Amino acid sequence: MPIVHIELLEGRTQEQKNALVREVTDAIVRTTGAKEEAVHIVIQDMEKGNYAVGGKTKLQ
């Protein structure tokens, strides 16, 4: 059972997340032979203030 965790900065629409889930599922099925119903995907939206690069949060 493949389990995929995806972390994104907040702001994506539900339609974008649905498309992402579809594409990731298809890639896993195609490359591993796993059954579609066995693929589990967890999406975590991060607040921009909780993610930093180079000493600055994405809110700065």
Rank of each mutant, 00 (worst) to 15 (best):
G55Q: 03
V4P: 01
L9E: 07
V29W: 10
E7L: 04
T32P: 03
D45C: 04
A34R: 03
L59I: 15
D45S: 15
E37G: 04
E47C: 01
A38Q: 05
N18C: 03
D45P: 04
L20K: 05
L9S: 05
A27N: 09
A52M: 11
I28F: 13
G49E: 11
V39F: 07
V21E: 01
G33N: 03
E36Q: 14
K56E: 14
L59A: 05
G55D: 05
R30A: 15
L8I: 15
Q14W: 02
E36P: 01
T25H: 11
A38C: 08
V39A: 01
K48Q: 09
K56Q: 14
V53S: 09
K35A: 14
K56L: 13
Q14K: 12
A27S: 15
R12I: 13
K35G: 08
T13W: 11
H5G: 12
M46R: 05
N18W: 00
I6L: 11
L59H: 00
M46S: 06
M46A: 05
T13D: 09
L9V: 10
M1G: 07
V53H: 07
T25Y: 12
A38P: 00
H5N: 15
I41S: 06
V53F: 14
N50Y: 13
E7C: 01
T57I: 13
E23Y: 00
V21P: 01
E23V: 10
V53P: 01
K58Q: 15
M1W: 07
A52I: 12
E47D: 11
A34M: 05
D45G: 03
G33Y: 06
E36R: 15
G49R: 05
Q60S: 14
R30M: 13
L59R: 08
Y51D: 02
T31W: 04
G54A: 09
I6T: 05
R22T: 14
V42L: 14
